[in-house]
């Protein structure tokens, strides 16, 4: 049961959240301008690093806000954002 810090509500149990996978994946401004390969990469391919990972969570059972966090995928520690 991870302890996840919602930027709006504070630290809460993992069960209150849903996971959103990699952060910082920008929706292409003009999908039609992309090749099939580029579009396929946008839809299906996400980073999957071992170590620090910028990811998205949403406080589903709380304020319902999405936020970004950096968590280490080996230790599960969240990096404190100052």
């Amino acid at each position: 049961m991870l302890l996840i810090r919602c930027p709006w509500c504070g630290p809460r149990n993992e069960v209150e959240f849903s996971y959103g996978g990699a952060a910082d994946v920008v929706y292409p401004p003009d999908p039609d301008a992309l090749s099939d390969a580029e579009w396929g990469e946008y839809v299906f391919v996400r980073d999957n690093p071992r170590g620090p990972f910028a990811e998205r969570w949403v406080h589903t059972a709380g304020c319902r806000r999405w936020f970004r966090a950096v968590r280490n995928t080996v230790t599960h520690e969240f990096r404190e954002e100052s």
Partner: peptide, 13 residues
């Protein structure tokens, strides 16, 4: 478990 991990460790719930 929903989150990405290389820890061979999941959550008890």
């Amino acid at each position: 478990d929903p989150f990405n991990s290389y820890a061979q460790r999941g959550s008890v719930h």
